[in-house]
Amino acid sequence: MEFAANITAAALFQQILVGLSRTTILFIVSSGLSLVLGVLRIPNIAHGSLYMIGAFMTWSIATVVGGSPAAFWLALAFAPLAVALVSFVVERGIFCRLYDREHLMLLLFTFSLTLVFNDLVKLIWGSDYRSLNAPDFLQGSFSIFGLPFPRYNLFLLLTGPLVALGLWLLTNRTKIGKIARAAAVDREMVSAVGINVSWVFAWVFVIGCYLAGLGGALVAPTQNITQGMDHAIIIEAFLIVIIGGLGNIWGALLGALIFGLTDAIGILVWPQFAIVFPYTAVVIVLVFRPKGLLKSVW
C-alpha cells in the first residue's frame, strides 16, 4: 500500500481533468437512468447492457464504414439511435404491459433483459474485446503544465455540457419534456387531463436508453469494448442517481461530478484502493442525506 508521496499541483490538475471527462460519461449514462426512474419508476438494470451495446454498435458502424474520418462521427450519430430503436421495440412489445406490476417485478424484468442482451452481444460480437480509434485530430495529447492530456478527453469535456443543455431544453422547453416532468410528480393527473401516458412513458424510456447508448458510443474510443463493461457502469449509475436524488437529472450531474472526481483523485492518492474513494463518498452523502442531495421526485 503506497501512498503517492508528493502530488504536484500540475498532476492534481491533470487528474481533475481526467476525472471530469469520466464525469461526462457517467452523467450521460446516469441521467438516462434517472429519467426512466423518475418518470416510469423503473430501476432499469438493462441500462448498463444498452450502454455496452452502444459501444459495440459504434465499433461495428465505424468498422463497416471503414477508415474514412467520417466513420467515427457516423457511428456516434447512429449507434445511440440503434440502441434507442432496440429499447423502443422492447418497450412497446413487452414493457408497456407491465407498468401496473410491483417494482420488484419490473426490476427482475429488466434483469431478464440484461441476461438476454448480454448473450446477444456475445452471439453477435463474440467474446473478444474490440478497440476503436478516435478520429485523427482527436488522437494524441497536448500538454498542460508539462503533463500530457488526451485530446479525446477534451472532446468529452465539451460534450458533457452540450448534453446537459440538450436535456435542459428537452425537459423545460418541449411539450414532451413538460408532460414527462408532470407525470413524474403526478401520473394520475396527467392521464386525467387526457394525455396518453403510455406514449409519454415510451418516449421517456427511449430517450433514457438513447442516453445509455450515447454514453457507450462516447466511451468506445477510450477503453476496450468488451463483455462485462456493463457490470461496473450500472452500479455506478445507480449510485450516482441515488446520491443525486432519484429522478432528478441535475442530481445525476452532481452525483456524476462527485463520483468522477473522487475516483480520479483516488487514483492519484492511493491507486490500489481508488475504487473505494467514490464509494466512500457515496456512503458519506447517504449517511447525511439518505434521500440524496437534490430533491427526489419520489
Binding site: 419508476r41 426490476l107 449510485l239 432519484l246 473505494v276 464509494y279 456512503v283 447517504l286 419520489w298
Partner: peptide, 21 residues
C-alpha cells in the same frame, strides 16, 4: 421500499469493491 433496495445494492457494491481490491 424501492429506495431501500437501491441503497442495498449500493452499500453491497461498496463491500464488493473492498473485497475486490
Amino acid at each position: 421500499k424501492l429506495y431501500f433496495g437501491m441503497m442495498q445494492i449500493s452499500l453491497g457494491s461498496l463491500v464488493w469493491a473492498l473485497v475486490f481490491r
